[in-house]
Simulated scan of single mutants.
Amino acid sequence: MDSPLTGTAAGVPFTALPPAGEGPAPLIVTWHMLDAPRSDAAFAAALPMHGLPAWRVHLGMPMCGARMVDGSMDAGAALMREDPLMAYLYPFVRQATEEFPAALASLRAQLPLDDGPIGVLGGSLGGAVALRVLAESDIPVFAGAVVNAAVRMRSVVELFPGDYPYDAESEKAVDSLDFVARADRIAARAPLLVVSGELDHPGLRADALDLVGALGERSALLSVPGLAHPLAEEPGIEPAPQLPTAREVDAGLVSWFARHLPAAGAVAGGNS
């Protein structure tokens, strides 16, 4: 396999995996988890989606990977302790979504991409970014996928200890990141694969099933036995060997995106 390319796009670090085949190719862009794998390079190793005739560009989330403060996740952890929703979860999703159009334009200037619709993929909190791109942007998307995603941010907040002290501002923020409530808009934009580990947090798994139900025929569910929330071993910052459960997720993503790629999109080796 070709070596990954690394760089920045409008200030956003990325790890890019080139397509199988020559010439301009479609783009699939991803946003990683804040659990392991918690960097663009580590996410690329966990879910490389080899064999697709598309660029897979894995973007770094705020304060992760190359954007860590002083080379560690400590600054992000401090924000999480300060206020898990309004200092951590919500601004991370908002920043990653808002910086994406400029990053996409920069990627198109740097890489031999075609000018057609893109694919989007997100894991955990990165799944909320992918869903927000679908729910709020007008960027053309041919297909999306999420893995153990933050489908309803209220469920993610409930994973933190104690009762969260909601006020009017935080209620508005958390409700804006309820993507079951926005399923009609998402379904109108692109077909969506919802990947859910059978051992994921119960609230997140229930939300995944609710999203599939709300999306109807525009969605598909891939339920993965033995998969908890993370896709890689700790610490999850550097690329690591692909775990068997991640390999199963990866195979499902390859099949899904191959099925929906624009005309160029048959998988090298014949998977579909």
Rank of each mutant, 00 (worst) to 15 (best):
D2Q: 12
D2Y: 09
T6G: 08
G7Y: 12
F14S: 03
F14Y: 15
T15H: 02
A20G: 06
E22A: 14
P26G: 01
V29D: 01
A36D: 13
D40G: 13
D40I: 02
A41E: 10
A42C: 08
F43D: 08
A46L: 02
M49F: 01
G51P: 01
W55F: 02
W55Y: 01
V57H: 00
L59P: 08
P62E: 08
C64D: 05
G65C: 07
M68W: 06
V69C: 00
G71P: 11
S72L: 04
A77V: 11
A77I: 12
A78W: 03
M80L: 14
M80P: 04
R81K: 14
P84L: 11
A87K: 13
Y88L: 12
Y88M: 14
Y88D: 13
Y88W: 13
L89Y: 11
P91A: 04
F92P: 00
F92N: 12
F92W: 10
V93K: 06
A96F: 06
T97Q: 07
T97S: 11
E98H: 13
E98I: 11
E99L: 04
A103T: 07
S106D: 15
R108Y: 15
Q110D: 15
P112H: 04
P112M: 03
L113A: 00
D114H: 00
D114T: 11
G116M: 02
G116P: 07
P117L: 05
G119Y: 01
G122C: 00
G122Q: 02
G122K: 03
G123R: 05
G127V: 08
V129Y: 10
L134K: 01
A135K: 14
S137D: 01
D138E: 15
I139G: 06
I139P: 05
F142L: 06
F142M: 06
A145I: 14
V146P: 04
V147E: 04
N148M: 10
R152G: 02
R154P: 06
R154Y: 05
S155L: 09
V156I: 15
V157F: 09
L159Q: 14
P161A: 11
Y164R: 14
Y164T: 15
E169M: 12
E171Y: 10
V174C: 10
R182G: 12
A183C: 04
A183R: 01
D184F: 00
I186E: 05
A188F: 06
L193Y: 01
L193F: 03
V194A: 11
V194N: 10
V194T: 13
V195A: 01
E198N: 09
E198M: 15
L199T: 08
H201T: 15
R205M: 06
R205E: 07
A206V: 10
A208C: 05
L209T: 14
D210P: 03
V212N: 06
V212P: 07
V212M: 09
S223V: 13
V224E: 05
A228Q: 03
L231Y: 12
L231K: 12
A232F: 07
E238H: 08
T245M: 11
A246D: 00
R247Q: 11
V249F: 04
V249Y: 06
D250V: 07
D250G: 09
D250I: 05
D250A: 04
A251K: 07
A251C: 06
L253D: 01
A268D: 05
G270I: 13
